[in-house]
Simulated assay, not measured.
Amino acid sequence: MIDHVRDLASVRDATDRLLTAAAKLNNDSTAEPSRLPGWSRGHVLAHLARNADALVNVLAGRPMYPSAETRDADIARDAPRALAEQLEDVRQSAAGFEAQAALPADWSRTITLRNGVTDSASRVPFRRWVEVELHHVDLGIGYELEDLPADFVRREITFLASRFSGNPDVPATRVTDGTHAWSTGRDGEPEITVSGPAPDLVGWLAGRRDGSALTAEGGLLPALPPL
């Protein structure tokens, strides 16, 4: 069962870790490339702030973004800002998300995200946690997939495996870290078993690693569609 209160506390902790680490940057290093193609570290920080605002909209019953073009334009606008302004924006937008989440609400209700995707409101805090943790890694400032909390990694593998479940372009696949196992891809008995350390599995599923550290039995490592 999803515990949105616990997830909100995890979001707060993850945000504090990110802000502490990013505070060691400077204006020049913020303008340097992140690990996301075409994005500087400033783009990543700007996206984190605007994503918090967007999830406030979701919880309040408004459209997540006015449009895809507006989302992209806001990130591009905010990316070149000085580090101090970036950090304050991340901090204030995170506080806004936390304040919205503290309002009395039916957490079992269905909410609408980008591109018409729907989900339970109770999963929104976890979705925000994903944003903060993975984009902390994307900043390329010493926080790696191996540093992610173990419970987060297991839940994110579960979430991503479910996201690709039933996809006709992904062969029926068993994913395992040797302790836990997940099924993904098109329906049917698993054709391929992908195994390896949990951080490498989440990196492959999330498009952060190429899967070269993983082992595929029964066929080639599946090529995953973009998230």
Score class of each variant (00 low, 15 high):
residue 64 M to N: 08
residue 72 D to E: 15
residue 106 D to R: 03
residue 91 R to I: 07
residue 114 R to H: 00
residue 23 A to P: 01
residue 153 V to K: 09
residue 59 L to S: 05
residue 99 A to S: 14
residue 127 R to F: 12
residue 126 F to Y: 13
residue 206 A to L: 02
residue 50 R to A: 12
residue 93 S to E: 04
residue 144 E to I: 05
residue 3 D to Y: 08
residue 25 L to K: 08
residue 66 P to T: 11
residue 172 A to K: 03
residue 115 N to C: 00
residue 211 G to Q: 03
residue 24 K to T: 15
residue 59 L to E: 04
residue 18 L to S: 04
residue 143 Y to K: 08
residue 77 R to N: 12
residue 12 R to H: 15
residue 139 L to N: 04
residue 4 H to Y: 13
residue 152 F to G: 02
residue 196 G to F: 00
residue 193 T to E: 14
residue 127 R to C: 02
residue 30 T to N: 08
residue 182 W to G: 01
residue 7 D to L: 13
residue 10 S to A: 15
residue 212 S to I: 09
residue 174 R to C: 06
residue 163 R to H: 13
residue 46 A to T: 15
residue 141 I to E: 05
residue 88 E to T: 14
residue 203 G to C: 03
residue 74 D to R: 15
residue 168 P to C: 06
residue 20 T to F: 05
residue 135 H to Y: 10
residue 36 L to R: 13
residue 176 T to E: 02
residue 159 F to W: 14
residue 98 E to F: 12
residue 185 G to D: 00
residue 108 S to N: 14
residue 46 A to V: 14
residue 33 P to V: 08
residue 161 A to Y: 02
residue 217 E to V: 14
residue 57 N to M: 07
residue 103 L to D: 11
residue 1 M to I: 11
residue 41 R to W: 05
residue 3 D to F: 03
residue 173 T to I: 02
residue 210 D to L: 07
residue 111 I to S: 02
residue 67 S to Q: 08
residue 143 Y to L: 07
residue 167 N to Q: 09
residue 211 G to T: 07
residue 36 L to C: 15
residue 3 D to K: 04
residue 129 W to P: 03
residue 177 D to K: 03
residue 69 E to D: 15
residue 175 V to N: 01
residue 89 D to P: 07
residue 209 R to L: 10
residue 36 L to F: 12
residue 76 A to N: 04
residue 121 A to F: 09
residue 135 H to C: 01
residue 196 G to D: 07
residue 101 A to H: 00
residue 114 R to W: 08
residue 218 G to N: 04
residue 179 T to Q: 13
residue 128 R to E: 09
residue 214 L to I: 07
residue 83 L to M: 09
residue 72 D to H: 14
residue 154 R to V: 14
residue 13 D to Y: 12
residue 87 L to V: 09
residue 163 R to T: 13
residue 158 T to G: 15
residue 200 D to L: 00
residue 172 A to P: 06
residue 41 R to E: 00
residue 142 G to C: 06
